[in-house]
């Protein structure tokens, strides 16, 4: 079983962007960025790629898979 690990908060802080600024740049609501950061909502592939592009990092650095036992 794999689990999605999200490093969006760290990368966003490093890029000096607020949730609202990132949301506007990728065309979603701030609420959506918040839920992605908290692991409540798993973004689609296009949204994940847009976020990575705005942050200037490869998508695997923002989102990665972690193997879970069982």
């Amino acid at each position: 079983m794999s689990r999605l690990v999200c490093h969006l908060k760290e990368h966003r802080a490093r890029a000096g962007l607020t949730q609202a600024a990132l949301a506007e740049a990728v065309g979603v609501s701030r609420k959506t960025i918040n839920t992605v950061e908290n692991g409540v909502f798993v973004p689609s592939t296009p949204l994940a790629l847009k976020i990575a592009r705005v942050l200037g990092v490869p998508v695997e650095e923002v989102f990665s898979l972690e193997e879970e036992e069982g």
């Binding site: 949301a23 506007e24 065309g27 979603v28 609501s29 609420k31 959506t32 839920t35 909502f41 973004p43 689609s44 949204l47």
Partner: peptide
Amino acid sequence: NPALFDERAQA
């Protein structure tokens, strides 16, 4: 303004 009804809201 599609951001108001983005993929999270649609989901």
